[in-house]
């Protein structure tokens, strides 16, 4: 057993865990934060996506003990103190979900993705690697979100929701 001090959604939690416990299982089974989902437990579906210091990661391949002290944000925490994150509302409006099981991961991933794009990071479909501030086209959204599978096939609605939210943010 090791003592792991996690900081999740702004709150500190101290857990005694065997080191093999993943961050995902620590969230779901120990902290009761079941909004983060387990779809494959092998980094192949993205349902477990959370933000670690604002960067999106697959929490299933993260040992909880490795993330002690990092600022972890899950779907339950993305709204902060507010009534809801506008991206959540955009998902509902654009029907970017069906069964809902991949949705938490899609939303956390999208938040991380927009931060990456905002920081000028390129993607596999970026035509000119050195051109910072390239436009967030639908092709860019789709490539950058490809780590999040949706078997219901709500992809169109998800892209619509992200585009709509990103445009609203750009207006602000």
């Amino acid at each position: 057993m090791v003592e792991v001090r996690l900081r999740v959604n702004g709150a500190d939690a101290s857990l005694d865990l065997p080191p093999q416990v993943s961050l995902l299982d620590a969230l779901r089974e120990r902290l009761g934060l079941t909004g983060t989902k387990k779809g494959c437990d092998q980094g192949a579906c993205g349902a477990c996506t959370v933000l670690a210091d604002g960067e999106r990661i697959n929490s299933c391949l993260a040992l909880a003990v490795q993330y002690a002290g990092r600022e972890i944000t899950t779907i339950e925490g993305i709204a902060g103190d507010g009534p809801g994150h506008p991206l959540q509302a955009a998902f509902v409006r654009n029907d970017g979900l069906q069964c809902g099981y991949c949705t938490s991961g899609q939303i956390c991933s999208a938040i991380g993705m927009l931060a990456e794009h905002g920081a000028g990071m390129p993607s596999a479909v970026t035509e000119h690697l050195c051109a910072d501030g390239a436009e967030l086209t639908d092709d860019e959204i789709r490539e950058r979100m490809s780590g999040n599978l949706c078997r219901c096939g709500a992809y169109n609605g998800i892209v619509d929701a992200i585009r709509e939210f990103a445009a609203a943010e750009a207006e602000r």
């Binding site: 079941t34 809801g84 509902v92 979900l97 949705t103």
Partner: peptide, 21 residues
């Protein structure tokens, strides 16, 4: 219309079979 369980599913509040304590 928007689906009635949209908020539960986008906030992580919806509990699936392995999520009932």
């Amino acid at each position: 219309l928007d689906r009635v369980d949209g908020t539960a599913k986008t906030t992580g509040a919806a509990r699936y079979a392995a999520e009932h304590p």
